[in-house]
């Protein structure tokens, strides 16, 4: 672990990007912030700008109209950062695998832009808040082994 990974793993600030999801994953992400699940215990906090973020929480199967915006967000984010693909849509397009307007999944877009970006997959339709927290914590623990 170098100092960059250490910095991210301690209190990950989250930025939420919806690339055409059905809202379900999004409300579960917001649920994580509310009293019952409360990710602030791990230092997680939703922030308003990708420039402040350590983790991009991406949901949705990446529609044609949101792809260029998502790429701009990736460029605008403070490096290093990790991308968490929340929900089956973001991980593999799930139900929308053969939809004409969905050109995801998220990993395809990040890889086309920069192979180095680390993508965490948190599957589920929608993943429960417990799963999202578990996925995040597991991912952040793995940061100990990688150099960003």
């Amino acid at each position: 672990m170098n100092w960059k990974s250490w910095g991210i793993s301690k209190s990950p600030w989250l930025y939420h990007v919806n690339t055409g999801s059905c809202n379900n994953c999004d409300i579960e992400i917001v649920d994580c912030l509310t009293p019952k699940f409360d990710v602030e215990r791990f230092g997680g906090k939703l922030v308003g700008s990708p420039r402040h973020a350590d983790v991009l929480m991406v949901t949705g199967p990446m529609t044609r109209k949101s792809k260029p915006r998502f790429e701009r967000i990736l460029e605008a984010s403070a490096k290093p950062f990790i991308v968490a693909a929340v929900g089956t849509c973001a991980c593999s397009k799930g139900m929308f695998h053969d939809a004409y307007n969905c050109i995801g999944p998220v990993r395809k877009v990040t890889e086309a832009l920069d192979e180095e970006i680390m993508v965490l997959n948190i599957p589920g339709c929608p993943p429960r808040p417990e799963a999202i927290i578990d996925g995040l914590v597991t991912g952040l623990n793995q940061l100990k082994e990688v150099k960003l």
């Binding site: 919806n18 690339t19 055409g20 999801s21 949705g60 199967p61 529609t63 109209k65 949101s66 915006r69 139900m95 929308f96 053969d98 939809a99 004409y100 307007n101 969905c102």
Partner: peptide, 14 residues
């Protein structure tokens, strides 16, 4: 709007 359009009506025909 239009960022969320996935083409569900078309998928439903399949």
């Amino acid at each position: 709007i239009g960022y969320n359009h996935r083409g569900i009506e078309k998928l439903s025909e399949k």
